[in-house]
Design a protein around this nucleic acid. Structure first.
Lengths: 340, 340
DNA sequence: CTGAAAGCGCTTACAG
DNA sequence: CTGAAAGCGCTTACAG
């Protein structure tokens, strides 16, 4: 068993003061109430014995757990795990623990998880909500839980969120490809009503119609990635549209599936087909040729998320702090997106 | 604010029984003590109102937090984040929360983190310990904290661990390359006394000496990856050993750095230089040519880790359950490791 | 078969 | 300037 830990009562006893006094000093509420010498005596002693308050007891008393939960689509995805790593550090710096989980875009699983976190009095929620999760998010917000959505959001809901400018970012990527000489660019996306996917599609539609080009869109169900069926769906798409000379993938895992297809078919990039993807990924830099992409500002996203979350955590009852943050994406031009 | 939650006292009051009775029923300690009808009444009511015990109060009373911490080298590394994802699911299934953090192989940072987790009464520790962390691990174990090491361990310490057979796995990989026709194979590893790195090096040494080949070893400092200096170090290694016709990388990020170098220098794989890596990675499958590797059994590792952790969590005071688990690796042969 | 009560380690309104 | 006491929501030894 772990060594018995010292408690506030022990300190009070050892120093012949009341636990009230010790508690006030510990919580910096001693100014003007407790004499300087007692403050000093207690502080020195606390430092000497290395006392740390029991968070469970504090939590029980104050109703706070100091836990923030970070619910993403899939924690093993590079985009999400990179942000998780940054969030983890920022949480600890601010005295919070970060726990995380993967929703797999499954509303039922996500609902169960949220219920569990409520039961365990998690203080704050950072969520990439699945499709059709609007009501659940609304009730979480209505209950007054600190809450920030990211990567996607619900336009009808007055809930804080951090996203990037998906529409404009996709538009700029397509513009780059079109100006690079590609005329029949297919857009490979998810069968999803999530805002970020809708916005990306709109960016594509806008670019294609602005330049008077044909529209080729493929929507794949998220679940088909588990079964690798996505691979065959992309193959069929290529077969049905033999005149395609470019492909834009709306997420990094879509791009990876697509690259597998192109690779196995020995289709040369960019000569036969130009390629770009949303999200950067290690694979893209090491691929031959290197794949251009629209990269999300990981560091800024994490920073903004934590900033908004902390603001909510501090003033528990006011929900007058709804913040909608939209960050710009970065066009990363490598070799796959323009003709030589 | 969140809706006020129902407590055990509310239930007792509503049902005209004592909280003792309710508690016994909730904790399945009612058999033979409480009448069947009261049990039924309470259970039905609990289900109806959806009561869930307050974990903070339970924790304060029992001294348990139901939190397991998963401390890895770097949570954004694909190997670690894949295992994290599996561990996360298994934890929830068993009623535990999983929190995680990255040690960055820094003993000081790791020490601070552990101190923090102790202060917050985390129940169990799963750790990839950095170099020189033996004493800290020993004292954690001596204090009686449930503890499992993984990926690496300390031979002198009687602490449970889950690793793979690094020596034999590396030996088999090298054997495969040598039989594939490579004669001057360089071994690129970390400057590290961690057991897994030592074992991998031994596997290399054994293979090379068995076949009477020359030994070319490069050790890189972990910190040089942050500054990208690793890239230049690998370049120098190639310059100094122009007769190398093969490279084995002891981790996946070493391999990625190495592939960047080979790619930029237009060195063809496997004709000019054969390549293999420890750990599988998405990049390897999508690289041209596809990179062979020694893949770790992610699923089995996660399963074993959770099994051992749960065993320790159940019998708190007995440390008679030290388990040393060594799993086999899988040779994944693709295109980079044999001459045509 | 059931309940009153102590106690886990804190915070804070109230009293002096 | 300082302290006694209630209470957060549980578990469990003890009593009946």
């Amino acid at each position: 068993m772990a060594k018995k830990k010292i408690s506030i009562t022990d300190i009070a006893k050892d120093l012949n003061v009341s636990i009230t006094t010790v508690s006030f000093i510990l919580n910096k509420k001693a100014k003007g109430k407790i004499s300087e010498e007692v403050i000093k005596k207690v502080e020195d002693y606390v430092k000497k014995v290395g006392y740390k308050p029991n968070q469970l007891a504090q939590g029980l008393r104050t109703g706070k757990s100091n836990i923030i939960v970070f619910m993403v689509e899939d924690i093993s995805d590079a985009f999400f795990s990179s942000i998780a790593r940054l969030m983890e550090e920022k949480s600890y710096q601010n005295g919070y623990k970060l726990i995380f989980c993967s929703t797999e875009n499954d509303p039922d699983k996500t609902r169960d998880l949220i219920q569990m976190f409520k039961d365990r009095q998690v203080d704050g929620y950072i969520i990439t909500p699945p499709d059709g999760f609007e009501k659940d998010i609304k009730s979480l917000a209505d209950d007054g839980h600190p809450l920030v959505l990211f990567d996607r959001y619900f336009a009808d809901l007055d809930v804080s969120h951090v996203v990037i400018n998906n529409q404009e970012s996709t538009f700029l990527s397509l513009k780059h490809m079109i100006e690079g000489g590609f005329r029949n660019i297919g857009f490979v996306t998810l069968e999803s009503g999530q805002s970020q996917m809708v916005d990306r599609l709109e960016g594509y539609d806008r670019a294609v119609s602005l330049y008077g080009l044909s529209n080729y869109t493929l929507r794949i169900n998220f679940k088909d990635f588990k079964t690798l069926k996505a691979y065959n769906i992309i193959e069929d798409f290529l077969d049905e549209n033999p005149n395609l000379d470019g492909l834009f993938f709306a997420t990094n895992y879509l791009a990876k599936s697509g690259l597998r297809v192109l690779k196995n078919r020995n289709i040369t990039i960019p000569d036969q087909v130009g390629v770009m993807s949303f999200d950067d990924n290690e694979v893209f830099e090491l691929y031959t040729p290197q794949i251009s992409c629209l990269s999300q500002p990981i560091e800024s996203i994490a920073e903004k998320l934590m900033e908004i979350m902390l603001k909510q955590l501090k003033n528990t009852n006011s929900n007058g702090h709804i913040i909608h943050s939209e960050l710009p994406g970065n066009l990363v031009i490598r070799q796959s997106s323009f003709k030589n």
